[in-house]
Amino acid sequence: MQIYVNCKNESEGGIPEWAIVELQGLIQTKKQENSSATVVGDMHYFNRNRHPVLVLGHHILNGKEVKLEHPMAVFEKIVIEDRTSYKVRAVVKKKILFKSRPKPIISNVSDKV
């Protein structure tokens, strides 16, 4: 049996490059209904060293932009009339890695937005 992987890409600049944001653990939201989008957090970069910082709820995570040792492909499984194939949607060459322990934000009550 063989399953075809289509690597043809229609976009002009070649295959898109996506990114991975790597976090330790799992992100959970308290939101119950799931019909709309949910903000997870704000990511900034420091001018000084270009390091990313992610504000995630009550936590600050300091991270690093890392070139992947091996690039990754993003395959999409497509099933049409019981026939499965894959399409390459993007490649990933870099990730934003947050591997240190999150630091809590200590704030005054009046600062609460």
């Binding site: 944001v21 939201t29 799931n34 019909s35 709309s36 989008a37 949910t38 903000v39 997870v40 957090g41 704000d42 990511m43 992610l54 091996h70 690039p71 990754m72 492909a73 993003v74 395959f75 999409e76 499984k77 497509i78 894959y86 949607r89 490649v91 990933v92």
Partner: peptide, 19 residues
């Protein structure tokens, strides 16, 4: 601003593969 998109925009058919 990173978001979890509405469910219709999430794609559960994606797989990652090292190259």
């Amino acid at each position: 601003v990173l978001r979890f998109p509405e469910p219709a925009k999430q794609n559960n058919n994606l797989r990652l593969m090292l190259l």
